[in-house]
């Protein structure tokens, strides 16, 4: 470990890693589409923490670092919009958004 590295950076990166791990667990273990989307939200939140920490502690003079965070927020919003649209279509067709019942979508 580099002794000159900032303690704040390591704490932020560890929090990001933990959020990513919890998100991976949620996305893989849940059977409901909305709960799976919550897991994906946590994965993206973990990525966002890392981006903010890298920008703040390594390159605060480069505004493009903040730009990346805005892009991740955009991805989160799109994921929600498209995910809920699919959930509505699925609920209307089958009366449930349980993914274990969605074997008919398997290619």
């Amino acid at each position: 470990m580099n002794p000159e590295i900032s303690m704040e950076l390591i704490i932020a990166l560890t929090a990001g890693a933990a959020l990513f791990g919890v998100g991976v667990y949620g996305a893989l273990s849940q059977t409901n589409l909305v709960m799976i989307m919550m897991g994906v939200e946590l994965i993206l939140a973990g990525a966002m923490v890392n981006l903010v920490a890298f920008w703040r502690y390594l390159h605060p003079d480069v505004a493009a670092g903040q730009m990346f965070v805005l892009i991740v927020m955009t991805v989160m919003a799109i994921e929600m919009a498209v995910g809920f649209a699919i959930a509505i279509a699925r609920f209307r067709a089958k009366g449930s958004v349980e993914m274990e019942e969605a074997v008919d979508l398997k290619g």
Partner: peptide, 8 residues
């Protein structure tokens, strides 16, 4: 090794 931390 993330390199030097920004001071300003």
């Amino acid at each position: 090794d993330w390199g030097p931390v920004a001071t300003t």
